[in-house]
Amino acid sequence: MALGVKSRRVLARLLQAVPTIFGILVVCFLLTRALPGDPAAYFAGDMADEASIEQVRKNLGLDQPMPMQFVTYVGDLLQGDLGVAISTGQTVAQELAKRLPASLELTLAALLLSLVIAIPLGVLAATRPNSWVDHLCRFLVTAGVSLPTFFTGLALLYVFYYLLGWAPPPMGRLDMMFLAPETVTGFYTIDSLIAGDWALFKASLAQMALPVITLALFTLAPIARMTRAAMLQTLASDYVRTARAAGLSSRRVLIDYAFRNALLPVVTTLGMVFSFVLGANVLVEKVFAWPGIGSFAVEALVVSDYAAVQGFVLSMALLFVSLNLLIDLIYTLIDPRVSEEE
């Protein structure tokens, strides 16, 4: 019975993503039509005359009414057609698919690292107000949100690569000496472990270390801040007072009463953190020449390759929506109060 209710909630939540995705498609469509000047003239190239521009307009369906154009646009998307990237000549979809694992590996590793550090830090800071942990937490939180990721990345490079020589040069996912492992997940660290190649694993980890730390420093702040705030609030709540008045052990009060409740706002904040991390990812990829979709987009921007940029924006949005969906599903499962009609 309980399961029935829960799966219904999950289903309802999945359905809610539909209008969001529709909204994303509309915005992306509008962005393709907002090209400076005449898109047909742009796609026809510099050399085109009136007639060939007209031809291109027809071919692209730009002479159709807007709603029709939108239908065509969505139809193309459904077939995986995002256009061709000018810089490489390959289709945008192929390029993105090839580069996505690199970005994902970086982003997920950074998220994991920041969660592992930020949540315990926030909890400790909240349970010991005005101790050194609390001050450290407050400092990290304020400094963390003030640091431009690209600047942190460069500063780390200067110290750990130029001065100390501990880090490898910022040249992508692997040193030239190594060959990429056989693709299973697309994550070099995991694939190299699957292949049993220890040296390769260490090499890919070494390449990842600085970019991951750079990203994690940035995402640490909002998570630690929210954890601390939420813990302070639950620790001051009436139900924690009841639990203490009933003589429950401090462990139980802290974990089952305070922390589990504090987790709810933290999980909600993660949505915002994803937004930050996916944006910061672009900058970090540029700094470390990381061959992900972010640096692909930056290169495309330089040569005004609009199809590539728009494909990038769309895929990032879809990635973000799926991450948010995941978060919401977790939330639905841990909070009994989420009602069905919501």
Binding site: G23, A34, S275, F276, G279, A280, V282, V309, A317
Partner: peptide
């Protein structure tokens, strides 16, 4: 909000 915000800003500037 359905877009990663920095990415949306990139898209807007690229398009506009």
């Amino acid at each position: 909000m359905a877009f990663p915000l920095f990415v949306l800003a990139m898209g807007i500037v690229a398009a506009a």
